[in-house]
Measured scan of single mutants.
Amino acid sequence: SKWSPSQVVDWMKGLDDCLQQYIKNFEREKISGDQLLRITHQELEDLGVSRIGHQELILEAVD
């Protein structure tokens, strides 16, 4: 995926409302499409996504 960080942010805006709070962290870390495809629970935790349910929603959406 050749998504830029801004495309990742646009994609996140289409996800569940409960995930919108994390967008600024993804933006700050400039998460690209390639990074998103390989993202782990630990990396999500580092991005402030501490709730497992929220991590799962992001990982499922990526899949």
Results as ranks from 00 to 15, higher is better:
1 S>Q: 01
1 S>I: 15
2 K>S: 14
2 K>W: 08
2 K>T: 15
2 K>H: 15
2 K>R: 07
3 W>K: 06
3 W>M: 15
3 W>D: 06
3 W>A: 04
4 S>C: 09
4 S>W: 00
4 S>N: 14
4 S>T: 13
5 P>A: 13
5 P>W: 12
6 S>Y: 10
6 S>P: 07
6 S>E: 13
6 S>N: 15
6 S>I: 10
6 S>T: 15
7 Q>H: 08
7 Q>W: 02
7 Q>V: 04
7 Q>A: 09
7 Q>T: 05
7 Q>E: 14
8 V>I: 05
8 V>F: 01
8 V>M: 02
8 V>E: 03
9 V>Y: 03
9 V>E: 07
9 V>C: 13
10 D>C: 09
10 D>M: 10
10 D>G: 11
10 D>A: 10
10 D>P: 00
10 D>V: 07
10 D>Q: 12
10 D>S: 11
11 W>H: 03
11 W>E: 05
11 W>I: 00
11 W>C: 02
11 W>T: 01
12 M>L: 09
12 M>G: 03
12 M>P: 00
12 M>R: 00
12 M>A: 04
12 M>Q: 00
13 K>L: 09
13 K>G: 10
13 K>S: 09
13 K>N: 09
14 G>L: 05
14 G>A: 06
14 G>F: 00
14 G>H: 06
14 G>E: 09
15 L>A: 04
15 L>M: 08
15 L>K: 06
15 L>E: 07
16 D>I: 04
16 D>R: 04
16 D>V: 04
16 D>K: 04
17 D>C: 13
17 D>A: 10
17 D>V: 07
17 D>M: 08
17 D>R: 09
17 D>W: 05
17 D>Y: 09
18 C>T: 09
18 C>A: 10
18 C>F: 02
18 C>G: 09
19 L>D: 04
19 L>C: 08
19 L>P: 04
19 L>H: 05
19 L>I: 11
19 L>T: 05
20 Q>R: 09
20 Q>S: 10
20 Q>P: 02
21 Q>R: 10
21 Q>C: 14
21 Q>I: 12
21 Q>F: 05
21 Q>K: 09
21 Q>T: 11
22 Y>I: 02
22 Y>M: 00
22 Y>W: 04
22 Y>G: 03
22 Y>K: 05
22 Y>V: 02
22 Y>C: 02
23 I>K: 07
23 I>C: 14
23 I>P: 04
23 I>G: 07
23 I>Y: 06
25 N>I: 12
25 N>C: 12
26 F>G: 03
26 F>R: 01
26 F>V: 06
27 E>M: 09
27 E>I: 06
27 E>R: 10
27 E>N: 05
27 E>S: 08
27 E>T: 09
27 E>G: 05
27 E>Y: 07
28 R>S: 13
28 R>Q: 13
28 R>F: 06
28 R>D: 13
28 R>M: 12
28 R>A: 13
29 E>Q: 14
29 E>N: 10
30 K>R: 13
30 K>T: 06
30 K>S: 12
30 K>Y: 07
30 K>V: 05
30 K>D: 09
30 K>L: 09
31 I>R: 01
31 I>V: 13
31 I>K: 01
32 S>F: 05
32 S>T: 15
32 S>E: 07
33 G>F: 09
33 G>D: 01
33 G>L: 06
34 D>A: 15
34 D>G: 11
34 D>S: 13
34 D>C: 09
34 D>E: 15
35 Q>V: 09
35 Q>M: 10
35 Q>E: 10
35 Q>A: 12
35 Q>F: 07
36 L>M: 07
36 L>W: 00
36 L>Q: 01
36 L>H: 00
36 L>E: 02
36 L>F: 03
36 L>G: 01
37 L>C: 11
37 L>M: 15
37 L>Q: 10
37 L>Y: 08
37 L>S: 12
38 R>G: 11
38 R>C: 09
38 R>F: 06
38 R>P: 03
38 R>I: 05
39 I>N: 04
39 I>V: 09
39 I>P: 05
39 I>L: 15
39 I>R: 03
40 T>G: 11
40 T>S: 11
40 T>W: 00
40 T>L: 00
40 T>F: 00
40 T>P: 02
41 H>G: 12
41 H>Q: 13
41 H>A: 13
42 Q>W: 02
42 Q>K: 14
42 Q>N: 09
42 Q>T: 11
42 Q>E: 11
42 Q>H: 09
43 E>L: 06
43 E>C: 07
43 E>V: 08
43 E>G: 11
44 L>V: 02
44 L>C: 02
44 L>W: 00
44 L>P: 02
44 L>S: 02
45 E>H: 13
45 E>V: 11
45 E>T: 13
45 E>G: 11
45 E>M: 12
46 D>V: 11
46 D>M: 13
46 D>C: 09
47 L>K: 04
47 L>S: 02
47 L>Q: 01
47 L>I: 14
47 L>D: 01
48 G>M: 01
48 G>H: 02
48 G>S: 04
49 V>N: 00
49 V>E: 01
49 V>F: 01
49 V>G: 00
50 S>E: 15
50 S>C: 12
50 S>M: 12
50 S>R: 13
50 S>H: 15
50 S>K: 15
50 S>Q: 12
51 R>G: 12
51 R>M: 13
51 R>P: 14
51 R>E: 15
52 I>M: 12
52 I>N: 10
53 G>W: 10
53 G>A: 15
53 G>Q: 15
54 H>Q: 00
54 H>M: 02
54 H>T: 01
54 H>V: 00
54 H>K: 01
55 Q>L: 00
55 Q>V: 07
55 Q>I: 08
55 Q>S: 05
55 Q>D: 00
56 E>L: 10
56 E>C: 10
56 E>H: 11
56 E>S: 10
56 E>G: 08
56 E>W: 07
56 E>R: 14
56 E>A: 10
57 L>S: 08
57 L>I: 08
57 L>Q: 09
57 L>E: 06
57 L>R: 09
58 I>K: 03
58 I>F: 13
58 I>L: 12
58 I>N: 01
58 I>R: 02
58 I>Q: 03
59 L>H: 04
59 L>G: 04
59 L>F: 07
59 L>K: 08
59 L>W: 03
59 L>R: 07
59 L>T: 04
60 E>A: 13
60 E>F: 04
60 E>M: 09
60 E>W: 04
60 E>S: 14
60 E>G: 12
60 E>N: 14
62 V>E: 04
62 V>R: 13
62 V>L: 08
63 D>F: 08
63 D>I: 08
63 D>H: 14
63 D>W: 07
